[in-house]
Simulated assay, not measured.
Amino acid sequence: MENKAFLISFLGIFFHVPQAAFGDGSYSFPEEMERGSVIGNLAKEMGLEVSKLAARKARIEADGNGKRYCDVNLSTGDIIVADRIDREGLCGKKSLCVLTQELVLEEPLELRRVMLNIQDINDNSPQFKKMDIHFEISESAAKGSRYRLEEAHDADIGINAVQEYSIGKNEHFRLNVISKSGGGKYSELVLEKELDREQTQTLAIVLVGTDGGAPRRSGTAVVHVTVLDC
């Protein structure tokens, strides 16, 4: 009986100590939203009383990543954007970009984890490392000869990354686009009509890399072909 009484007393003390109550909230929204934009309503989704948020000093704090990206509107219970969120800067090429923040409430103390799933927007254009690409090709080169071109890179992911390549109209080359096994695409020039240095000594062909976002963005480079005498 004495042990039982001690256990009951211990449990009574235990349950009266302020505890951290973990109830996760998860929100998905696009990067680069303006400061003050509403992401969702914490009070409604976590069952909190809006009228008590100010008295309980509700606030968002960073959880391990060192920066607070969101805040709480104490009048409405909304969670709002507090600072610029650049998905590429935070997560690079990762397919999933999740930031962890923490909702802190006092009297009694509660900690609620807030997971922010940052979605990519098409805010970057494809870029070639070199704006000018040079080839020296002999006029004796056989029809069907291939010349690999530099790949365009895009900081965005998925459909917002580079989806296709094209070249300006010309009578000697067509473009072949190849998908890589690990993702991404590159292109190559394919000789369609033999070169003749006596007729053409140099060619300048515009290469375009285009993403699949909305609106679509593109980047360009110029392929310079010097025809060598055989």
Rank of each mutant, 00 (worst) to 15 (best):
I80S: 03
I80C: 00
I80V: 07
D83F: 05
D83Q: 02
R84Q: 14
I85W: 00
D86C: 11
D86W: 03
R87S: 01
E88K: 10
G89F: 00
G89K: 06
L90E: 03
C91Y: 07
K93G: 11
K93V: 14
K94C: 10
C97I: 02
V98L: 15
V98A: 13
L99V: 02
L99G: 01
T100M: 15
L103C: 05
L103M: 08
L105M: 04
L105Q: 07
L105V: 02
E106F: 02
E107Q: 07
E107K: 08
P108C: 09
L111W: 07
V114N: 01
M115I: 12
L116H: 04
L116Y: 00
N117G: 07
N117A: 08
I118A: 05
I118Y: 01
Q119V: 13
D120E: 02
I121L: 06
I121C: 04
I121K: 04
N122V: 11
N122P: 04
N124F: 13
S125P: 02
S125I: 11
S125F: 03
P126F: 06
Q127F: 10
Q127Y: 12
K129H: 09
K130C: 11
M131P: 13
D132G: 09
I133T: 00
H134A: 10
H134K: 09
H134R: 05
H134E: 10
F135D: 00
E136W: 06
E136I: 09
E136K: 08
I137Q: 01
I137G: 01
I137E: 03
S138M: 13
S138H: 13
S138L: 15
A141C: 03
A141F: 04
A141T: 06
A141V: 07
A142L: 14
A142T: 12
G144F: 04
S145Y: 09
R146F: 08
R148P: 11
R148T: 14
L149Y: 05
E150D: 01
E150P: 01
E150Q: 04
E150G: 08
E151K: 15
E151D: 12
A152G: 01
A152W: 06
A155S: 12
